[in-house]
Amino acid sequence: MAEKIKLEICCGTTCFMLGAAEIMQLATNMPPDLDGHVEVTGLACMNACLNENLGHSPFVRIDGKLIGNATVEMVCDELRKRLNGGGDNE
């Protein structure tokens, strides 16, 4: 079986307040087509927000790629692209 996609969600207090809480729900409630293919981890503050002015929280990292202003839908879309396209096609 292929390696799982790594989804790291920043659970720093600011990111958590600004949307990471919802994204974290993917840990227990992944859409059926993605279920079993993703390893979800909640991290302490990744400091990605330090140079930003709140505008880009919440942050996630998917296989090492940092994504700001993340939403559940956006994360799932990116995960699907990786699962079906086999990598970063941008």
Binding site: C11, G12, T13, T14, F16, M17, G42, L43, A44, C45
Partner: peptide, 17 residues
């Protein structure tokens, strides 16, 4: 809870750490 979260975030306190 929003205010408490903001109080912690605005004070630079990371709950997870």
């Amino acid at each position: 809870f929003e205010e408490l979260g903001a109080l912690l975030a605005g004070s630079g306190i990371d709950i997870m750490s």
